[in-house]
Amino acid sequence: MADTILNVEHLNKNFGKKQVLKDVSFSVQTGHIVGLVGPNGAGKSTIMKAVLGLFNYASGKITIDGDPVSPTSHKAMDKVGALIEYPGIYPFLTGYQHLQLFSKDSTSKDQIMDIVDKMKMDSYINRKAKTYSLGMKQKLGIALALVDRPKFVILDEPMNGLDPQANKDLRTIILDLAKQGTTFLISSHILSELEKLIDDLVVIDKGQIVYTESMANLESGGKKLLVLKTSDDAKAKDLLAQNNYQLDDGDKLAVIENDQTKMADVIKLLSDNDIEIEDVQHVHSDLETSLLNLLKNDKVKES
């Protein structure tokens, strides 16, 4: 198990009588970026807090880099950086003072300035945090999670309140760090953003893990479609069906692509039969579609 940094086994957690986590098990490979997604209230933050040793849990086992984690066992936290829910900010301190306060003694001034620079916070890092906008606070929160260059980083909704440029900067930083061996566990609702980052996906619904898969598998599992718009869609459909093309059910004229499907052949077939092609589009099922389908199937029964 040397290559997994986080192991969660059979984790159960109750808030009063309501069971919020049910037998949650998953692991995170070292150096991977793992997305934790699920509907509101599914238990994402709860899992993250449990992993950070902020919660007592009823049963189960959490280990980071082999060390057990619980509210009374925090040794492993030395290797972890995190941003949970919203960044905790003291209004009376400047951004730089926050980084100074929370960074380890072994973290040099250069290292602090390095993350400030990468997050493009230079212009306001010496201003008191009470003057910060939501996005600035969010960036500071992320900087706090990364400043000590931890082995394992947990980010809960890191894109919250970030503008498009900051979003892109964050993506670059995360991908760079991952290349250098940092492991990330990231939750987000902005699936289009998450999709650009993650290697593996963990889907949680109603306190249970419903799906764990690598992105590569997820993408290959989805349908690729060639969507056409022609002068006579009905005729085109018949024609394509006769020529053994698989068509997608639905109102639109869409050919399900496989390895043998060649766009040129489709176009030639249609134009030879005097059907004018007005538009052609490749459509991949994206993370959002796959995920919504997955959650719609509702593998989880409310207990």
């Binding site: 902020l54 925090h74 492993a76 936290m77 030395d78 949970i84 919203y86 905790g88 003291y90």
Partner: peptide, 19 residues
């Protein structure tokens, strides 16, 4: 109380130190 008010309690607690 300020740690709860500012939400900084999480940052204080998830570190290697004991509560």
């Amino acid at each position: 109380a300020m740690e709860f008010q500012y939400g900084t309690i999480k940052e204080l607690l998830y570190r290697k130190y004991y509560r």
